[in-house]
Every structure is written in structure tokens, then in C-alpha cells.
């Protein structure tokens, strides 16, 4: 069950570059949340009406941790919040990953797609293989936290400032990483090539998608992706049918 809740800011800090870490007290939404879901965060401003969809990085009892990147005026407002401030959020939105603890897992995160994989790794028991990729060192977050869970962590940056020089899928190929199931989140182009890799290696590949949305609950039909339907395709909603889809079902463009 989704709800709208006034959340209290427990902590808000800048991790690196323009990436922020926000912990909110929101008992109703936190108690319902599962890994891979997101919350809609309202700016409280009449000129910035639409909520900003932000993935859930960690579920901590009656709190949620959100790790997000400042990409515009809305997220800039969030970055200026401090202890005790309040903001309205709606959630939990969408369907999370289909977790299967019986099967070996490979988690692949690109850029600001990394955060939702932390709770996913936790709930899979920690001992998973994780590939974290970003443009550059400053944008590659949470590496130590995955390691603390007991995960085997690989990193890649486009500029080689840390880890493997190249993208996530190139790293997967070089290391010949395999598992039963891939859980992933990141830029569309990464998810597309990751899906191709998964098909080649005969792996299941859950991808978490993103698209511009207005309502976050399936009413406005704004945030669509093309999903295969027999010989044809249909538009499915990221917010309600997703954000997690099986990579094989997505019509990649």
C-alpha cells in the first residue's frame, strides 16, 4: 500500500561531487518498501510541482536512505535540507527486484544507478558479486559499503581514474563474470549492452529503468518504455509496471 507521508530529515550530507546522502524518517513508507522501489519526493515549491522520483538506497527500520545526484532545481532543493526539516514523499512506488536467494547474483550499477543495489545486496545476503561503474572516480559511490557487506566488488570508470578503464560490460567480459541472475540499474545504454551480455551467457537480467514521470503511481501514463508483446510491443509504465523489467522483454533502441 502506498501513502503520502511527511518525512523528517535525519541527516543530509554531500558524499562526493554532486551526489548527496539523505536519511528520512517515514515509518509508513519504510515499512512497506522493498529493494528496487523508489519514492516520489515533492519539492514543496509551486513552480516545481512534480515530485522527483528517487530510488531507495537502504531501508533502515522506520527510515529510508536516499542517495541521489543533483541534476536540476528540484534535487538542488533537497541538497540544502538539514536535520529536522520536513518534506512530503509518496511511496513506495513501483515493483522492486525479484530477489532469489537460491541463485547466484551479479549486481551491476552505473552512475547514480548504484544506490538501489545496496539494499538489494543486503537482502540477498551480502555475499554477491558487484560491478560498479561511473564516468569518473568522484561519481563512483558506495564501494566500501558493498565491501562491508561481504560482496566481491569490481569497479570501472570511463577515464580509468579508479578500477578498470572502460564501461561495466567491458569489465564483465574481461573478467568473464557470470551468475544465475543479474540485478542492474543505470543508464539505458548500459542496460542495453548488459542485456545482450546476459543473453549470450544465458543469464536472467533484471534491469531498473528510468523515464520522465508526473504522478509516480500509474495514472498519468507519462513514463513509458516499450516492452515486447508477442510479435508486437506495448508501452508499459516505469512507475507502476516497473521500474524493474526483464532485459529480454525491453525493446532497446
Amino acid at each position: 500500500m502506498k501513502s503520502v507521508e511527511t518525512a523528517k530529515v535525519i541527516s543530509s550530507r554531500n558524499i562526493t561531487a554532486n551526489i548527496y546522502d539523505l536519511v528520512l524518517e517515514c515509518p509508513k513508507i519504510a515499512s512497506e518498501a522493498v529493494p528496487g522501489q523508489f519514492v516520489e519526493v515533492y519539492t514543496g515549491r509551486s513552480d516545481l510541482l512534480l515530485a522527483r522520483p528517487i530510488s531507495i538506497c537502504e531501508i533502515l527500520g522506520n527510515r529510508l536512505r536516499l542517495v541521489y545526484q543533483v541534476v536540476g532545481k528540484g534535487t538542488e532543493i533537497f541538497s540544502k535540507l538539514g536535520l529536522g526539516d520536513e518534506l512530503r514523499i509518496l511511496g513506495p512506488c513501483g515493483n522492486g527486484y525479484k530477489l532469489n536467494k537460491e541463485k547466484s547474483a551479479l549486481l551491476v550499477g552505473g552512475g547514480i544507478g548504484i544506490p538501489p543495489l545496496l539494499e538489494t545486496a543486503k537482502q540477498l545476503g551480502g555475499k554477491v558479486t558487484v560491478v560498479l561503474a561511473a564516468r569518473t572516480k568522484d561519481l563512483l559511490v558506495l564501494e566500501d559499503e558493498f565491501a562491508k557487506l561481504g560482496a566481491k566488488v569490481y569497479t570501472a570508470t570511463d577515464d580509468g581514474s579508479v578500477g578498470f578503464k572502460g564501461n561495466a560490460v567491458e569489465l564483465l567480459r574481461q573478467e568473464d563474470l557470470k551468475a544465475d541472475v543479474i540485478y542492474s540499474c543505470g543508464p539505458k545504454i548500459m542496460l542495453k549492452f548488459l542485456t545482450e551480455y546476459a543473453i549470450e551467457k544465458n543469464m536472467e537480467c533484471q534491469v531498473s529503468m528510468e523515464e520522465r514521470m508526473a504522478c509516480g503511481i500509474g495514472a498519468c501514463v507519462g513514463c513509458v518504455v516499450k516492452i515486447k508483446n508477442g510479435d508486437d510491443w506495448e508501452h508499459k509504465k516505469v512507475c507502476k509496471d516497473g521500474p524493474v523489467f526483464e532485459g529480454r522483454e525491453v525493446v532497446w533502441e
Binding site: 516545481l48 520522465r212 498519468c220 501514463v221 507519462g222 513514463c223 506495448e234
Partner: peptide
Amino acid sequence: WKGNDAPRIAEVYGGMLNSV
């Protein structure tokens, strides 16, 4: 009806645009 391609939503000052 399949509707239009994404992006279908844009926020504007005090409102939004849609092209569903």
C-alpha cells in the same frame, strides 16, 4: 492505442506539458 514515444512529460513553471 499505443500512444506517443517517451519523453511524454516536461515540467514547466507552475505546471507541466504532456504528450501521452
